Amino acid sequence: MKIGIAFPNTIPGASGRLQTEWAVRAEERGFSTVSATHRLRYPGHEPLPVLAAAAAVTSRIGLSTNILVAPLTTAEVLAKEAATVASLAEGRLVLGLGPGVRADDFEAADRDFGRRAQVFDGQLAELARLRGKEGAGILPGPVPPVLVGGLSANAVRRAARWADGWTAPGLEPELVAPTVRQVEEEWAAVGREGRPRLVALSRYWLGADVAEEAAGFVRDYFGVLGNEAESFVEKTPRSPGRIREQIAELAAAGFDEIVFHPTAARLSQVDRLADAVLS
């Protein structure tokens, strides 16, 4: 099981300098990947620029979006931007994509929230086309590998048909494990060779000194869910033992990698997670 870590790029107040320091420390401590997520109408840094900056200060660690809301832009713009970051990173980028779930992000981008699923299907088909000869004349390099996020039957179909694998949402292992089998079965059913790349997500915080800050962020970020936001606070792993248990559960489910999303914008969270799971 590979262990990755996400940037604090959607945590309000986290500076640009912290993003690059985070990437450097994550590489030093041996994480497999450093990942950036995406919200438009929420404070924070956009994922692809953060990953471009990370590419400039690292040389080995994998870089990924997990996830980027593809229908907020066009397939051609996304392909050009992703291929640019992949070129800067010398092939270390993986593009985790999803159709999005927040209507306010689409309103801010002047995009049609109701048509996002159809748009996303078209984008995946276009990205697949641009990964071939068609992209050679307009892109600075190859479109990076693509993972599709989501738990729906459509997400399973998209991952098997258009992508290199699937990335699960940050829910409890028992909620995402069944979809692993579905993705693998659909992958085989459509005649794909090999096996899909499977990535899981989890939130975390470590240390009493960040507990209030971390819980406040989780509560605010999931505030759109109303009272259910409090359950996200309660279910966030916050001890080395619980984090290791979650890794074991997700490994048993068949995942190749788990990316831990910090809920406190403190560089100490990189070291504490590394001490808990990489030592």
Rank of each mutant, 00 (worst) to 15 (best):
I5W: 14
F7S: 02
T10R: 05
P12M: 15
L18S: 10
L18K: 12
Q19R: 03
T20D: 05
E21D: 08
R25M: 08
R29V: 02
G30K: 04
S35V: 06
R39Q: 06
Y42P: 09
G44Y: 14
H45R: 06
L48E: 10
L48W: 13
P49M: 10
V50Y: 14
L51R: 09
A53V: 09
A55S: 15
A55L: 13
T58Q: 13
T58R: 14
S59V: 14
I61L: 08
I61W: 06
G62V: 05
V69S: 10
V69N: 11
L72A: 06
L72D: 11
T73N: 14
T74G: 02
A75M: 05
L78D: 08
K80M: 10
K80R: 11
A82R: 12
A83F: 14
T84R: 06
V85R: 07
L93W: 09
V94D: 05
L97N: 09
R102G: 00
D104Q: 07
D105F: 03
A108V: 06
D112L: 10
F113C: 13
V119L: 15
D121P: 00
G122Q: 03
E126Y: 00
L127R: 04
A128I: 10
A128S: 08
L130W: 13
G132V: 12
G132M: 13
E134P: 10
P142I: 07
P142E: 05
P142L: 09
P145C: 13
P145H: 13
V146Q: 04
V146F: 12
G150T: 01
G150Y: 01
L151D: 02
V156D: 01
V156P: 01
R157M: 00
R157Q: 01
R158S: 00
R158I: 01
W162T: 00
W162E: 01
G165K: 02
W166N: 00
T167N: 03
E174H: 08
E174G: 08
V176R: 08
V176N: 04
T179M: 04
R181N: 05
R181M: 07
Q182R: 07
Q182V: 00
Q182W: 00
A188F: 02
A188Q: 01
A189K: 06
G191C: 08
R192M: 09
E193F: 12
G194T: 02
G194R: 08
P196C: 02
P196T: 08
R197N: 04
R197K: 07
V199C: 15
A200Y: 03
S202Y: 14
R203W: 07
W205G: 00
G207H: 13
E212G: 10
E212P: 02
A214P: 07
G216H: 04
F217C: 04
Y221L: 14
F222V: 00
G223K: 09
G223V: 02
N227K: 15
A229Y: 09
E230P: 14
E230Q: 15
E234C: 09
G241P: 02
R244N: 05
R244Y: 03
E245T: 07
A248R: 10
A252R: 15
D256N: 15
I258Y: 04
V259C: 11
H261A: 12
P262N: 10
T263N: 12
A264R: 15
A265N: 11
R266Q: 14
R266Y: 13
Q269H: 11
L273N: 11
A274F: 15
A276L: 06
L278G: 03
